[in-house]
Every structure is written in C-alpha cells, then in structure tokens.
Design a protein around this nucleic acid. Structure first.
Lengths: 120, 120
DNA sequence: TACCAACCTGAAGCTACATCAGGTCAAGAT
DNA sequence: ATCTTGACCTGATGTAGCTTCAGGTTGGTA
C-alpha cells in the first residue's frame, strides 16, 4: 500500500507520516524497488494508533518511547501497557477540563442572553 | 493587582499573559506609575475565560476575533455569542474523539493482557 | 546603602507539524 | 519516441503558540 492510501486510512496526513518516520516513531517502513514507501497492514494499525494518540494530545516524546518499546519485542508489553494506561488517565483529565469549560461557556452564554433580554 | 497574582488566579502563566497582551487579545491593561501592569477584576475575568478557551483548543485567531468584538461594545453580543456557541460545538466533537480514543486504548490494553496471559 | 525579588522588553528557542522548491519515476496520450 | 501527468521523493523553510533568555528597571527591606 502506498503513502496516500495509508494516509487516507490512518487519518494522518501524508507529510505527517513522513515526519513521523523521520522522527523514529514508525519503525521499519518497507520501500519498493522504486524507493517509495510500501505500508503493511501492521504499519497501518500502528499509524492509526498514533493518530488517536496524537489526536488526544500525546507528545511525540512519549510516542517515541512507546515505539522504542515496541521495537524491542514482546517482553516490553507491560511497559507499553503502562504508557497507554497513563495516557488513559490523561484522557480522563481532559474530559474534566471539557466539562468545566462547558460550564464556563454556559455561564457566559447565559449572561449574554440576559443582556439581550435587557436591550432588545 | 500585579501580573503574578493575575497569573495565579486566571491559570495562565505570566509570560503567556504578556504574550496575549502583545497579541492583542487582552484589551486595555492599565499601567501603574512604575510602568508595571495593574489588573482589574474585569481583566481577571477575561484572562480566566481565555484560559478555558485555550485549554480546550481555541486558536489565537478566534480569540482575537472575540477580543475585537468585545472591544467594540455591547452591540456585538450576538456575534460573541455565536463564537462561543461554535466553540461549544467543538467541545462536543472533542468529547467524541476522547470517547473513540478510549475505545481504541481499551482494545489495545485488552490485547496486551491477552498476550500476558499467553506468556506468563 | 546594599540587596533581593518582582517586574520590564526584545529576541531567540522549541514542538509538532505544514508547505514549498526542486527532482525522480512510471504510465498513458500524441 | 517523446511528452505530459500525477504520485512520490528529499531537504529546507514557514507557522502557531508559547517558553526561555539576556539584560535592564523598580520598590521595599536589613
């Protein structure tokens, strides 16, 4: 599979995929005899996971750690689990922030509506 | 009120407040005779709102638009309301992304646990 | 009077991409 | 056989949103 298809499926942009490879967080992408990247289904899974991790704010540094662990094989599964669980906690915090922001917004909007009632 | 207190209350950093002022998204901060910033309660409210908007991903460009509207007085209240409501929609989308990411993470974690059972 | 903390400015540094310039290569149209 | 088109390549530069740094005032305290 070529890079454009990989981008379409994973959700990442073409440039982002190249950037991620250069940054060392996408281990071993094959190249065809033409020198162009060929993506395996395993690659696609990996990119898709990266997409979701980025989408929810995981820094590249952490992704790099995760990728390094992945490259070291099966005995790093507990460590990888720990990384993902830590990120899941981050998600919970984000959710709290969303909640609080929604409260703030609702409050502001209520004030605006009050104001509009006052000056029709 | 000085900048350090303003930072502590609003949640923003001192440097971020200065940066926001320079970027034109915090209208009219007074200065004392010593040339240092003095913050009114109104300023603090504004900064706190900015804190929450930033925390949930509103771009500076949008904040700038919002600030410009604010500076133009009461007749822009409907426009400001629209900005905040658009942002509230963004929040809903973020929440969906969080949900989906949690599903992906839970799936990965389940696979890891399966793996650990298999190779104890 | 000497010093320390808190403030100031302008400039440079950083992260995580996005975009651009300039070039390769294969496949179909002329 | 050549020409064009489109997808890909690399390396460099640009952008957003801060953050940190260098170097310079104040204002209160010992």
């Amino acid at each position: 599979m070529r890079i454009s298809e990989a981008a379409a499926i994973s959700g990442l942009g073409i440039d982002t995929i190249r950037y991620y490879e250069k940054s060392g967080i996408v281990p071993c992408i094959d190249r065809g005899s033409d020198g162009q990247r060929r993506f395996t289904p395993e690659n696609i899974d990996w990119l898709t996971l990266l997409y979701w991790l980025r989408q929810t704010g995981m820094p590249l540094k952490t992704m790099r750690r995760f990728a390094t662990l992945y490259a070291q094989g099966g005995q790093t599964v507990p460590a990888r689990k720990a990384v993902l669980m830590a990120h899941a906690e981050q998600l919970a915090k984000r959710r709290e922030e969303l909640d609080r922001c929604e409260v703030v917004l609702a409050h502001k909007l209520a004030i605006y509506e009050e104001f509009e009632k006052g000056t029709p």
